[in-house]
Write a protein that binds this DNA or RNA. Structure first.
Ligand SMILES: [Mn+2]
Ligand SMILES: [Mn+2]
Ligand SMILES: [Mn+2]
Ligand SMILES: [Mn+2]
Lengths: 145, 145
DNA sequence: TTTGAAACATAGCCTTGGCTATGTGGCATG
DNA sequence: CATGCCACATAGCCAAGGCTATGTTTCAAA
Protein backbone atom coordinates (compact mmCIF):
# COMPACT_ATOMS: atom_id res chain seq x y z
CA UNK A 1 0.00 0.00 0.00
CA UNK A 2 2.72 2.57 -0.74
CA UNK A 3 1.33 5.03 1.87
CA UNK A 4 3.77 4.76 4.77
CA UNK A 5 1.99 5.66 8.02
CA UNK A 6 5.24 6.97 9.59
CA UNK A 7 3.38 9.00 12.26
CA UNK A 8 -0.34 8.90 13.09
CA UNK A 9 -0.83 12.71 13.05
CA UNK A 10 -2.71 13.06 16.28
CA UNK A 11 -5.39 15.49 17.19
CA UNK A 12 -2.75 17.36 19.20
CA UNK A 13 -0.46 17.65 16.19
CA UNK A 14 -3.17 19.50 14.31
CA UNK A 15 -3.49 22.10 17.04
CA UNK A 16 0.27 22.52 17.23
CA UNK A 17 0.31 23.19 13.52
CA UNK A 18 -2.48 25.75 13.78
CA UNK A 19 -0.66 27.49 16.66
CA UNK A 20 2.55 27.66 14.68
CA UNK A 21 0.71 29.04 11.66
CA UNK A 22 -0.78 31.71 13.83
CA UNK A 23 2.57 32.80 15.20
CA UNK A 24 3.89 33.52 11.71
CA UNK A 25 0.62 35.01 10.43
CA UNK A 26 1.34 38.52 11.66
CA UNK A 27 4.87 38.52 10.34
CA UNK A 28 3.52 37.49 6.96
CA UNK A 29 0.93 40.23 6.87
CA UNK A 30 3.40 42.90 7.95
CA UNK A 31 5.92 41.75 5.37
CA UNK A 32 3.31 41.78 2.61
CA UNK A 33 2.12 45.23 3.69
CA UNK A 34 5.61 46.72 3.77
CA UNK A 35 6.15 45.41 0.27
CA UNK A 36 2.89 46.97 -0.84
CA UNK A 37 3.77 50.32 0.68
CA UNK A 38 7.13 50.36 -1.08
CA UNK A 39 5.43 49.57 -4.38
CA UNK A 40 2.73 52.19 -3.91
CA UNK A 41 4.55 55.01 -2.21
CA UNK A 42 8.24 54.32 -2.58
CA UNK A 43 8.73 53.83 1.14
CA UNK A 44 7.19 52.21 4.19
CA UNK A 45 6.92 54.46 7.21
CA UNK A 46 5.93 53.12 10.60
CA UNK A 47 2.98 55.50 10.74
CA UNK A 48 1.62 54.20 7.44
CA UNK A 49 2.13 50.60 8.49
CA UNK A 50 0.21 51.28 11.70
CA UNK A 51 -2.62 53.00 9.82
CA UNK A 52 -3.04 50.19 7.31
CA UNK A 53 -2.87 47.49 9.94
CA UNK A 54 -5.34 49.36 12.08
CA UNK A 55 -3.10 49.37 15.15
CA UNK A 56 -1.46 52.03 17.28
CA UNK A 57 1.93 53.29 16.24
CA UNK A 58 3.90 51.62 19.06
CA UNK A 59 2.28 48.33 18.12
CA UNK A 60 3.62 48.67 14.60
CA UNK A 61 7.03 49.63 15.97
CA UNK A 62 7.14 46.46 18.02
CA UNK A 63 6.10 44.37 15.04
CA UNK A 64 8.88 45.91 12.98
CA UNK A 65 11.30 45.06 15.80
CA UNK A 66 10.24 41.45 15.54
CA UNK A 67 10.64 41.51 11.76
CA UNK A 68 14.18 42.82 12.25
CA UNK A 69 14.94 40.24 14.88
CA UNK A 70 13.78 37.53 12.47
CA UNK A 71 15.98 38.89 9.70
CA UNK A 72 13.07 39.94 7.52
CA UNK A 73 13.49 43.70 7.66
CA UNK A 74 15.79 46.56 8.54
CA UNK A 75 14.94 50.10 9.54
CA UNK A 76 16.59 53.41 10.23
CA UNK A 77 14.73 55.80 12.54
CA UNK A 78 12.82 58.52 10.68
CA UNK A 79 13.84 56.86 7.45
CA UNK A 80 11.42 54.02 6.89
CA UNK A 81 11.40 50.24 6.99
CA UNK A 82 13.03 48.02 4.38
CA UNK A 83 12.57 44.35 3.63
CA UNK A 84 15.65 42.14 3.39
CA UNK A 85 15.93 39.67 0.52
CA UNK A 86 14.38 37.04 2.73
CA UNK A 87 11.64 39.46 3.70
CA UNK A 88 10.94 40.35 0.11
CA UNK A 89 10.74 36.70 -0.85
CA UNK A 90 8.32 36.08 1.98
CA UNK A 91 6.19 39.08 1.03
CA UNK A 92 5.97 37.95 -2.59
CA UNK A 93 5.06 34.42 -1.64
CA UNK A 94 2.43 35.65 0.79
CA UNK A 95 0.96 38.05 -1.76
CA UNK A 96 0.61 35.33 -4.39
CA UNK A 97 -1.00 33.02 -1.88
CA UNK A 98 -3.38 35.75 -0.76
CA UNK A 99 -4.49 36.35 -4.34
CA UNK A 100 -4.90 32.67 -5.08
CA UNK A 101 -7.08 32.18 -2.02
CA UNK A 102 -9.29 35.14 -2.91
CA UNK A 103 -9.64 34.06 -6.53
CA UNK A 104 -10.43 30.54 -5.47
CA UNK A 105 -13.10 31.61 -3.01
CA UNK A 106 -14.70 33.81 -5.62
CA UNK A 107 -14.55 30.95 -8.11
CA UNK A 108 -16.59 28.72 -5.80
CA UNK A 109 -19.24 31.38 -5.34
CA UNK A 110 -18.16 33.56 -2.41
CA UNK A 111 -18.95 37.27 -2.88
CA UNK A 112 -15.79 39.27 -3.50
CA UNK A 113 -15.87 41.42 -0.39
CA UNK A 114 -16.53 38.39 1.80
CA UNK A 115 -13.75 36.49 0.04
CA UNK A 116 -11.35 39.31 0.76
CA UNK A 117 -12.34 39.35 4.44
CA UNK A 118 -12.12 35.59 4.96
CA UNK A 119 -8.92 35.23 2.96
CA UNK A 120 -7.04 37.50 5.33
CA UNK A 121 -7.31 34.78 7.97
CA UNK A 122 -7.57 31.65 5.85
CA UNK A 123 -4.39 32.31 3.86
CA UNK A 124 -2.14 31.62 6.84
CA UNK A 125 -3.45 28.10 7.23
CA UNK A 126 -3.32 26.99 3.62
CA UNK A 127 -0.51 24.48 3.02
CA UNK A 128 1.41 24.23 -0.25
CA UNK A 129 -0.56 21.15 -1.17
CA UNK A 130 -3.89 22.87 -0.60
CA UNK A 131 -2.68 25.91 -2.50
CA UNK A 132 -1.79 23.66 -5.41
CA UNK A 133 -5.28 22.17 -5.33
CA UNK A 134 -6.71 25.71 -5.46
CA UNK A 135 -4.48 26.54 -8.42
CA UNK A 136 -5.50 23.40 -10.26
CA UNK A 137 -9.14 24.22 -9.64
CA UNK A 138 -8.68 27.72 -11.00
CA UNK A 139 -6.89 26.67 -14.17
CA UNK A 140 -9.36 23.85 -14.72
CA UNK A 141 -12.18 26.38 -14.53
CA UNK A 142 -10.43 28.55 -17.11
CA UNK A 143 -9.85 26.22 -20.08
CA UNK A 144 -9.80 28.86 -22.78
CA UNK A 145 -9.02 32.56 -22.39
CA UNK B 1 -27.62 49.41 -7.85
CA UNK B 2 -29.09 47.72 -4.77
CA UNK B 3 -25.65 47.15 -3.19
CA UNK B 4 -25.32 49.87 -0.58
CA UNK B 5 -21.64 50.74 -0.05
CA UNK B 6 -22.31 51.73 3.60
CA UNK B 7 -18.64 51.33 4.66
CA UNK B 8 -15.60 50.86 2.42
CA UNK B 9 -14.19 47.86 4.35
CA UNK B 10 -10.64 49.04 4.67
CA UNK B 11 -7.51 47.01 4.76
CA UNK B 12 -7.41 47.62 8.52
CA UNK B 13 -10.92 46.22 8.93
CA UNK B 14 -9.77 42.94 7.43
CA UNK B 15 -7.01 42.59 9.98
CA UNK B 16 -9.34 43.47 12.82
CA UNK B 17 -11.66 40.71 11.67
CA UNK B 18 -8.83 38.18 11.47
CA UNK B 19 -7.66 39.16 14.96
CA UNK B 20 -11.15 38.74 16.35
CA UNK B 21 -11.51 35.36 14.66
CA UNK B 22 -8.25 34.27 16.21
CA UNK B 23 -9.34 35.26 19.70
CA UNK B 24 -12.36 32.96 19.54
CA UNK B 25 -10.54 30.15 17.73
CA UNK B 26 -9.22 28.49 20.84
CA UNK B 27 -12.54 28.71 22.64
CA UNK B 28 -14.16 27.04 19.66
CA UNK B 29 -11.67 24.20 19.57
CA UNK B 30 -11.90 23.59 23.31
CA UNK B 31 -15.70 23.60 23.18
CA UNK B 32 -15.72 21.16 20.27
CA UNK B 33 -13.23 18.93 22.04
CA UNK B 34 -15.15 18.86 25.30
CA UNK B 35 -18.24 17.86 23.38
CA UNK B 36 -16.29 15.10 21.65
CA UNK B 37 -14.95 13.78 24.94
CA UNK B 38 -18.42 13.66 26.44
CA UNK B 39 -19.68 11.78 23.42
CA UNK B 40 -16.78 9.33 23.41
CA UNK B 41 -16.12 8.79 27.08
CA UNK B 42 -19.09 10.13 28.95
CA UNK B 43 -17.06 12.88 30.57
CA UNK B 44 -14.42 15.50 29.87
CA UNK B 45 -11.59 15.57 32.39
CA UNK B 46 -9.02 18.34 32.36
CA UNK B 47 -6.22 15.81 31.91
CA UNK B 48 -7.85 14.39 28.80
CA UNK B 49 -8.51 17.83 27.39
CA UNK B 50 -4.85 18.72 27.90
CA UNK B 51 -3.69 15.51 26.26
CA UNK B 52 -5.87 15.94 23.19
CA UNK B 53 -4.99 19.60 22.78
CA UNK B 54 -1.32 18.79 23.20
CA UNK B 55 -0.80 21.29 26.01
CA UNK B 56 0.24 21.07 29.65
CA UNK B 57 -2.45 20.46 32.22
CA UNK B 58 -2.38 23.98 33.73
CA UNK B 59 -2.81 25.39 30.25
CA UNK B 60 -6.00 23.39 29.83
CA UNK B 61 -7.17 24.47 33.27
CA UNK B 62 -6.74 28.10 32.31
CA UNK B 63 -8.61 27.56 29.05
CA UNK B 64 -11.46 25.97 30.96
CA UNK B 65 -11.50 29.00 33.25
CA UNK B 66 -11.94 31.23 30.25
CA UNK B 67 -14.72 29.01 28.92
CA UNK B 68 -16.47 29.35 32.28
CA UNK B 69 -15.96 33.08 32.35
CA UNK B 70 -17.53 33.30 28.89
CA UNK B 71 -20.51 31.24 30.01
CA UNK B 72 -19.66 28.31 27.76
CA UNK B 73 -18.82 25.72 30.40
CA UNK B 74 -19.03 24.79 34.05
CA UNK B 75 -16.79 22.51 36.05
CA UNK B 76 -16.55 20.95 39.44
CA UNK B 77 -13.08 20.05 40.68
CA UNK B 78 -12.27 16.35 40.29
CA UNK B 79 -15.57 15.92 38.50
CA UNK B 80 -15.02 17.02 34.94
CA UNK B 81 -16.00 19.86 32.67
CA UNK B 82 -19.50 20.40 31.30
CA UNK B 83 -20.69 22.55 28.45
CA UNK B 84 -23.58 24.93 29.06
CA UNK B 85 -26.39 25.09 26.52
CA UNK B 86 -24.59 27.94 24.84
CA UNK B 87 -21.38 25.95 24.88
CA UNK B 88 -23.06 22.90 23.43
CA UNK B 89 -24.60 24.96 20.67
CA UNK B 90 -21.19 26.44 19.88
CA UNK B 91 -19.53 23.03 19.88
CA UNK B 92 -22.11 21.61 17.51
CA UNK B 93 -21.85 24.54 15.15
CA UNK B 94 -18.06 24.36 15.19
CA UNK B 95 -18.09 20.60 14.57
CA UNK B 96 -20.38 20.92 11.58
CA UNK B 97 -18.25 23.69 10.16
CA UNK B 98 -15.09 21.66 10.71
CA UNK B 99 -16.54 18.74 8.79
CA UNK B 100 -17.81 20.89 5.97
CA UNK B 101 -14.41 22.49 5.54
CA UNK B 102 -12.65 19.13 5.49
CA UNK B 103 -15.14 17.63 3.04
CA UNK B 104 -14.90 20.66 0.83
CA UNK B 105 -11.11 20.60 0.73
CA UNK B 106 -11.13 16.91 -0.10
CA UNK B 107 -13.71 17.58 -2.81
CA UNK B 108 -11.40 20.05 -4.54
CA UNK B 109 -8.52 17.61 -4.50
CA UNK B 110 -6.69 18.08 -1.21
CA UNK B 111 -5.41 14.82 0.33
CA UNK B 112 -7.41 13.84 3.37
CA UNK B 113 -4.65 14.14 5.97
CA UNK B 114 -3.60 17.52 4.63
CA UNK B 115 -7.22 18.65 4.56
CA UNK B 116 -7.58 17.68 8.18
CA UNK B 117 -4.44 19.61 9.13
CA UNK B 118 -5.31 22.77 7.22
CA UNK B 119 -8.95 22.73 8.28
CA UNK B 120 -8.01 23.02 11.94
CA UNK B 121 -6.84 26.55 11.25
CA UNK B 122 -8.97 27.53 8.27
CA UNK B 123 -12.29 26.73 9.93
CA UNK B 124 -12.04 29.69 12.28
CA UNK B 125 -11.88 32.17 9.44
CA UNK B 126 -14.71 30.83 7.31
CA UNK B 127 -17.74 33.11 7.41
CA UNK B 128 -21.31 31.88 7.15
CA UNK B 129 -21.46 33.04 3.57
CA UNK B 130 -18.31 31.17 2.63
CA UNK B 131 -19.55 28.10 4.47
CA UNK B 132 -22.75 28.25 2.45
CA UNK B 133 -20.72 28.40 -0.74
CA UNK B 134 -18.82 25.30 0.39
CA UNK B 135 -22.09 23.52 1.13
CA UNK B 136 -23.51 24.43 -2.24
CA UNK B 137 -20.37 23.18 -3.92
CA UNK B 138 -20.59 19.89 -2.07
CA UNK B 139 -24.25 19.22 -2.85
CA UNK B 140 -23.71 20.26 -6.47
CA UNK B 141 -20.94 17.69 -6.75
CA UNK B 142 -23.22 15.02 -5.33
CA UNK B 143 -26.31 15.08 -7.61
CA UNK B 144 -27.44 11.50 -6.98
CA UNK B 145 -26.67 9.33 -4.00
C1' DT C 1 17.71 80.61 12.90
C1' DT C 2 14.32 79.54 15.73
C1' DT C 3 10.55 76.61 16.74
C1' DG C 4 6.49 73.67 16.52
C1' DA C 5 4.16 69.81 14.60
C1' DA C 6 4.67 65.27 13.02
C1' DA C 7 7.14 61.07 13.29
C1' DC C 8 9.19 58.06 15.94
C1' DA C 9 10.97 55.87 20.40
C1' DT C 10 10.27 54.38 25.02
C1' DA C 11 8.04 53.10 29.25
C1' DG C 12 4.59 50.77 31.46
C1' DC C 13 0.29 48.35 31.52
C1' DC C 14 -3.06 44.52 30.06
C1' DT C 15 -4.74 39.86 28.24
C1' DT C 16 -3.91 35.57 26.10
C1' DG C 17 -1.76 31.32 25.84
C1' DG C 18 2.14 28.82 26.62
C1' DC C 19 5.40 26.63 30.31
C1' DT C 20 7.48 24.39 35.03
C1' DA C 21 7.35 23.57 39.81
C1' DT C 22 4.88 22.56 43.58
C1' DG C 23 0.97 22.24 46.79
C1' DT C 24 -3.46 19.72 47.90
C1' DG C 25 -7.72 16.97 47.64
C1' DG C 26 -10.10 12.23 46.49
C1' DC C 27 -10.27 7.76 46.30
C1' DA C 28 -8.83 2.98 45.76
C1' DT C 29 -6.16 -0.34 47.79
C1' DG C 30 -3.79 -2.58 51.19
C1' DC D 1 -9.04 3.47 58.19
C1' DA D 2 -4.82 4.76 56.74
C1' DT D 3 -2.08 6.30 52.97
C1' DG D 4 -0.18 6.96 48.63
C1' DC D 5 -0.97 8.07 44.00
C1' DC D 6 -3.19 10.63 40.57
C1' DA D 7 -5.86 14.52 39.28
C1' DC D 8 -6.26 18.90 39.80
C1' DA D 9 -5.18 23.70 41.60
C1' DT D 10 -2.02 27.39 42.26
C1' DA D 11 1.94 30.26 41.80
C1' DG D 12 5.11 32.33 39.04
C1' DC D 13 7.51 32.80 34.78
C1' DC D 14 7.71 34.09 29.61
C1' DA D 15 6.64 36.05 24.80
C1' DA D 16 3.37 38.08 21.72
C1' DG D 17 0.35 41.49 20.56
C1' DG D 18 -2.55 44.96 21.94
C1' DC D 19 -2.98 49.78 24.37
C1' DT D 20 -1.95 54.90 26.43
C1' DA D 21 1.08 58.34 27.91
C1' DT D 22 5.03 60.72 27.30
C1' DG D 23 9.72 61.76 25.81
C1' DT D 24 12.81 62.87 21.72
C1' DT D 25 14.13 63.86 16.69
C1' DT D 26 13.58 65.88 12.29
C1' DC D 27 12.35 69.03 9.20
C1' DA D 28 10.00 72.70 7.20
C1' DA D 29 8.09 77.08 7.65
C1' DA D 30 8.11 81.50 9.71
MN1 LIG E 1 -3.59 37.74 6.56
MN1 LIG F 1 -2.94 38.92 3.23
MN1 LIG G 1 -9.49 24.58 14.90
MN1 LIG H 1 -11.82 21.88 14.63
Amino acid sequence: MSTTPSSPVTHADRFARAREAQSVALLEDYAELIGDLHAEMGEARVADIAARMGVAQPTATKAVSRLKREGLATSRPYRGVFLTDTGTALADRVRRRHRTVVSFLVAVGVPEDVAELDAEGIEHHVSDQTLSAFDRFLSAGTPED
